[in-house]
Write a protein that binds this DNA or RNA. Structure first.
Lengths: 147, 147
DNA sequence: TAACAATAAATCGTGCGCGATATAAGTAGG
DNA sequence: CCTACTTATATCGCGCACGATTTATTGTTA
């Protein structure tokens, strides 16, 4: 290995890739209890914040493309979590809304997930201010790279 | 939205998920020139560091399962980047080695990737010490969550 | 208002990740 | 030395991500 720049240990990207996978894995047990995946949980958070949004708005909020979000929403519709119906003023849009089940999952998530993640990260030496700092650094990278 | 803990903007995980995707996307143009994907690039970095490794060692280095790495290596073999041959002392193992093409890609990567990433992140306000700090925080999370 | 460009969503193909399972080879205990 | 257990890899199925293309609807402009 001639080039230090190409070493795995020197790569921020590999750390991001790995940390994202491991944190998502840490969510998985709680999400499996709810019957959903992590990307589906992200969609739910978007809709809990504001219900009745077109596919595009959800995709933009998550910085994803509609060709990722559309199949995701179709699966969530099959699960009975969301409804999709044509927009009335703009018939190209699909307006996504929470079902009763989708709304009720917020309380279930609140009961399980923050505590479950807290427990799994309890052994992590990072302090609250470290997480705050980390969030700012990630936001800088995200802001720089998003189109 | 009743619960601040469940808001997207308060989630470290969503930031990790997004930052990892966007940084990977930033690599993509350079990697496409080389004809490989980001996970394939990770495998190459592992092999550039130390050639002739069994599947398990590569998987452990990347914190991935063999059911992810095996098909990845099969695709890389088809691309003529690596060879796989049965281990001699332990016939269960597949020893993975770089082909001539795989070795030559290190220089191509070194010529393109550090410069390309530097350019794309040039607008990012983070300083060298911020990246160092970020790396440490990510390492803490990774160390805590890996099995 | 007819033609054309732009936009919203969906569809298709490929490559990951990963849980679950299978297969083959090595190891250990009786 | 035979059976049981462990380990290394592979296979299968599903759900993302994402580039590329398609379809339907809206807007724009001559």
């Amino acid at each position: 290995m001639a080039h230090a720049e190409l070493q795995l240990d020197n790569q921020i990207c590999f750390r991001l890739y790995t940390a994202a996978r491991l944190v998502t894995q840490a969510y998985t047990p709680m999400l499996t209890e709810l019957g959903i995946t992590y990307p589906q949980y992200l969609v739910l958070m978007v809709l809990w914040e504001k219900d009745n949004q077109p596919v595009n708005d959800i995709a933009h909020r998550l910085l994803l493309e509609t060709n990722t979000v559309t199949p995701l929403l179709q699966r969530m519709e099959k699960l009975g979590i969301v409804n999709r119906k044509k927009g009335e003023q703009d018939k190209r849009q699909q307006i996504v809304s929470l079902t009763k089940k989708g709304k009720e999952m917020e309380e279930l998530a609140y009961a399980k997930i923050p505590a479950g993640m807290g427990e799994q990260l309890s052994a992590c030496p990072l302090k609250l201010e470290d997480y705050f700092h980390l969030a700012q650094e990630l936001d800088s990278i995200i802001k720089t790279l998003k189109k």
